[in-house]
Computed example of a mutant assay.
Amino acid sequence: MTRRLTPPERYAFGASLSSLQAPNGDPCVRLTAGDLWMAARTPDGPGTLHLSKDGGELAATAYGPGADYLEDRADAIAGLRDDVSDFPALAKAHPLVHQLARTFAGLRMPATGLVFHRVLRAILEQKVTGVEAFRAYRMICRKFGEPAPGPMDLVLPPDPAAIAASPYWVFHPLGVEQRRTQALLRAAREAGRIERCAGAAEATRRLTALPGIGPWTAAEVTRVAYGDADAVSVGDYHVPNTVAWGLAGEARGTDARMLELLEPFRGHRGRVCDLLAHGGIGAPRFGPRMPIRSFARY
Rank of each mutant, 00 (worst) to 15 (best):
M1W: 11
L5N: 09
P7I: 09
R10E: 01
Y11I: 09
Y11N: 03
Y11L: 03
G14C: 02
G14D: 03
S19R: 10
C28Q: 06
D44K: 08
K53P: 02
G55C: 08
E57I: 07
T61R: 14
A62I: 10
D68P: 04
D72I: 05
A74H: 09
A76G: 11
R81W: 11
D86W: 00
F87R: 10
L96M: 11
L96R: 15
V97C: 09
M109E: 03
A111Q: 05
V115M: 07
L124T: 10
L124P: 12
Q126R: 12
T129V: 11
T129F: 08
T129E: 12
E132S: 14
I140N: 01
K143N: 01
P151G: 11
M152G: 01
V155I: 07
A161V: 02
A165M: 09
A165D: 13
S166M: 04
Y168N: 04
L174T: 09
R180T: 07
R180H: 02
A183N: 06
A183H: 11
A191T: 08
I194R: 09
R196Y: 04
C197A: 15
G199H: 07
T204M: 07
T222I: 07
A225G: 06
Y226L: 01
A229G: 00
V232R: 02
G235L: 04
N241H: 14
W245L: 04
G249P: 09
R266G: 10
R271F: 14
D274G: 08
L275D: 03
L276G: 00
A283H: 10
P284Y: 06
F295K: 06
R297H: 14
